Computed example of a mutant assay.
Amino acid sequence: MTRPIIDFHCDALSKLLLDPKLDFSKDRRLDVNLRRLKKGGVKLQTFAIFLSQRLGPPKMEHILGQIDVYQERVQPLGVLPVQSVEDLDALEQGEAVGGLLSLEGADGLEGNLHYVRVCYEKGVRLLGLTWNYANWAADGIMEPRNGGFTPAGLELVRLCHELGIILDVSHLSVKGFWELQQLAEEAGKPFIASHSNAYEVCPHARNLRDDQIQAIIKLGGRIGVTFVPWFVKEGRSASSKDLLPHIERICSLGGGANLMFGSDFDGIETHLTDLRHSGHYANWQESLLKYYPEELVRGWLYDNAAAFLRAWLPSHK
């Protein structure tokens, strides 16, 4: 039996923007397309707005361009936009696949907080503060100086807390992580790491240290275990089985109820050998059930992420 799945990160919109000929309904050049989402049992897919370097300097017009792609080439195929608790309710009561918009990196906002409000009005509900390097708001995890937030970045955090935009630390510097942790604790607003694994299992800079995992757990946030091979295992090719030590590590730190998945499909050229696109999620969940009880697996696949969204998406009531 296929269980519903929430995937908290993919980069299909960036590919669709760069290649107008791609067909989201079934194009095999997309790791995530509608046919594969349905085959894999993905009920809700988060679509990241990632501004490729091929577009030139990041601008607000590029963000709006990807939102247009989502509205014109994804939604009309029957993908239900999820922007509120009521939308999530409607999604769960029907047969449609849902879509949630995330902005990966504040670069394209150009330091203009008015643009943040525009993004919110257009349905963006998650914000990854940086990509790997520095921008006007904060330093990314690959920035050599490992700085934190700028004054403008702190204003961005406050505005996101005010609007109800969920913040994502997956590419944020370590210093920035701890600055945000303090702000989030003061505001009572948890954050997520949409696509990061456990550093103690695979010591890649993009993965989370134990104390970071514990901080997210304490705040009631979520951690999306990701399928990026070089975040999963050092050296040669990796398979889905190599994700299990990351799951074990997060659970050993108390994060069984905080764990979800964020594939990063369409953001990677190399894949896990047996988890190459969203259609393979069906096999992945069956693999998980060989090692873990049904209730835990359901939590990781759907319930943990859904409970978080139910708590932190806006409600129209």
Rank of each mutant, 00 (worst) to 15 (best):
Y291C: 04
S84G: 02
P4T: 12
E269Q: 14
E185F: 04
D264S: 02
I5C: 03
D11Q: 03
L126M: 15
V85K: 14
S287E: 12
L17E: 09
R28V: 08
K317L: 07
M260W: 05
T226Q: 00
W300K: 11
W131G: 13
V157G: 00
H246Q: 11
F177I: 07
G56R: 14
S25M: 01
E185P: 01
Q66N: 08
C202V: 08
F308E: 05
A106Y: 01
Q71K: 11
D139Q: 09
L64V: 12
N197M: 06
A257S: 12
H316Y: 13
S194P: 05
M60N: 10
K39V: 00
A48R: 04
P57Q: 13
K26T: 06
S84Q: 11
N146I: 02
H161Q: 12
M1A: 12
K59C: 12
I63P: 09
F265Y: 02
P76I: 06
S84F: 03
Y115A: 10
G78L: 05
L113N: 09
Q182H: 10
I6W: 02
D87S: 04
S287Q: 12
G41C: 08
V79F: 06
G108R: 13
L180C: 10
R54G: 06
V157F: 00
L64A: 13
F24H: 08
L51N: 14
E155N: 09
K233V: 11
N146Q: 15
N132S: 15
V116C: 02
K122P: 00
A96W: 00
V225T: 11
E162R: 07
A106W: 07
W230R: 11
K189N: 10
G267P: 00
R28H: 08
S287D: 05
P144E: 13
F24W: 06
E286A: 06
P81N: 06
C251Y: 03
I165K: 15
K38I: 11
K290M: 03
Y70C: 04
M142A: 15
T130M: 11
H171A: 15
M142G: 03
E72V: 01
Q212R: 06
R54Y: 05
